[in-house]
Design a protein around this nucleic acid. Structure first.
Length: 431
RNA sequence: GCCGGGGUGGUGUAGCCUGGUUAGCACAGGGGACUGUGGAUCCCCUGGCCCGGGUUCAAAUCCCGGCCCCGGCCCCA
């Protein structure tokens, strides 16, 4: 037997109904915020992604040679393709450019809970503004996207790469990424383990003190931004902190400040982020961490051969969000069965088809008995697949100009004349 | 990439440790009892040991490799 390719999944009708529900909620908000949908090819030249050297995703590329000998890779995220598209054709377009996408991504990793080799992201990119107003717009949309799915129990935690760099500088640490990795782990460790790790990294007493101070800068903006002002002395850091003040002020006016937390320990894995970074967390017992993330990447477009252009964006991981929504019971149970099931009895096939077509033209989900089951079995089947109504088309009725409509839930039956079927069905379906 | 645990009809499982009946059961699916009324009963049928190699008189069972699934590390969505 041929198995599925590792880390990929088949989506069945019920899965698709749930996924579509979530995508539609998110899409509506993206559109309301004035973002326009794009889609780029699922593969790019491998060297496009390799421009982001040093990043983990480059090691995880789903890469291969095509028949023409081209080195190509399936996209590990959308940002590279969007930046390429921008550099190719949109450098002269009016700014900012606001694009969104809902698409599948591929990373060659070992699958585990909440992680697949093919996964889907819904995300946005806002290109051409370095203003904190752009960050606010994007982060507000990020929050609103989750809210649109009915999720309330989550936070969007905001960090800042510039402050982390400044911090590493303050400590005289050259391996700032190494330091960030350790800082990133602090929640999984005890205070003691965390300190030991920092010692192993080569920090002295006073530096460790500072790190502990930094990781305390975590909570509601109003509470923790003053702490950041105390910790950081440099002009560059002060400027960045005032940006964070402005950002949270704007987010209050967007009406989403309740979900915002500052957490200066956030690094995020992508090296292309340059200043404000953020991720969404929703507490759960499913072992799912971040349910989405993003940030500002002001030099990626230049790396891809464009004029230096600031940009910011985020991606929501559907494989992370969906289980949480299901776990919280926020996804409406999809209706998988037909609304109406038409059963023709002996010699009544043509009349039945005629009825089914009329209902289908009204966009009523209608199935018709196709395998010649007898009435008893056909009703059995209708019941199994969850049909709401059954229309029995029998000679005896039709000769009197009627059919029998049976409500499968209540068991009630109605004799309905042939030209009133559509109305009666709509009525019974409460449409 | 590394480390654990797994893989028996469509689904859920028994059998595996300790090799030896025709691989058992339940549900689902198809047909019939039943030529116009289901969620009930009875009967019949379809259909399986992930793939390949090895050990053996004999492999679902033991060994090796591959594929896939579940979970952890790393990393991330």
């Amino acid at each position: 037997m041929i198995e599925r390719v590792k880390g990929t999944r088949d989506f069945l009708p019920e899965d698709m109904a749930k996924r579509r529900w979530v995508f539609e909620k998110i899409r509506e908000v993206f559109e309301a915020y004035g973002f326009k949908e794009i889609l780029t090819p699922v593969m790019e030249y491998t060297k496009l992604f390799q421009l982001r050297s040093g990043e983990e995703v480059v090691k995880q590329l789903y890469a291969f040679k095509d028949k023409g000998g081209r080195d190509v890779s399936l996209r590990p995220d959308m940002t590279s393709s969007v930046a390429r598209l921008y550099v190719n054709s949109f450098q002269m377009a009016p700014k900012p450019i606001k694009w969104y996408y809902i698409a599948n991504m591929f990373r060659y990793e070992e699958p585990q809970s909440g992680r697949y080799r093919e996964f889907w992201q819904a995300g946005v990119e806002l290109i051409g503004s370095d203003k904190v107003e752009a960050d606010a717009e994007v982060i507000a949309l990020f929050v609103e996207s989750y809210l649109s799915t009915g999720l309330r129990d989550f936070t969007v935690n905001i960090g800042d790469r510039i402050l982390l760099d400044e911090f590493a500088g303050m400590l005289g640490v050259s391996d700032d990424i190494g330091l960030m990795r350790i800082i990133d782990k602090r929640d999984k460790l005890s205070q003691e383990e965390f300190i030991n790790l920092l010692k192993e990294f080569g920090l002295g007493e006073s530096e460790i003190e500072k790190v502990l101070e930094l990781v305390e800068i975590k909570g509601r903006p109003d509470n923790v931004l003053p702490l950041a002002e105390e910790l950081f002395k440099s002009k560059k850091a002060k400027e960045e902190i005032s940006k964070l003040y402005k950002l949270t002020d704007l987010l209050e006016w967007y009406g989403v400040k309740d979900w915002i937390r500052i957490d200066l320990g956030i690094a995020r894995g992508f090296d292309y982020y340059t200043s404000i970074v953020f991720e969404a967390i929703s507490p759960n017992e499913l072992g799912i961490g971040s349910i989405g993330g993003g940030g500002r990447y002001d030099n990626l477009i230049e790396i891809f051969g464009g004029k230096p252009t600031p940009a910011t964006g985020f991606a929501i991981g559907i494989e992370r969000l969906l289980p949480i929504l299901e776990w919280k019971g926020l996804i409406p149970k999809p209706q998988t069965g037909p609304e109406v099931f038409v059963i023709p009895l002996k010699d009544m096939e043509k009349v039945a088809i005629n009825i089914a077509v009329k209902l289908r033209r009204e966009k009523i989900k209608t199935d018709i008995e196709l395998s010649g089951r007898k009435l008893g079995k056909a009703l059995d089947y209708a019941n199994r697949v969850g049909a709401k109504l059954v229309i029995i088309v029998g000679k005896r009725d039709v000769e009197r100009g009627v059919v029998t409509i049976r409500d499968m839930e209540s068991g009630e039956q109605y004799n309905v004349s042939l030209n009133e079927i559509v109305d009666k069905v709509k009525n019974l379906l409460k449409r």
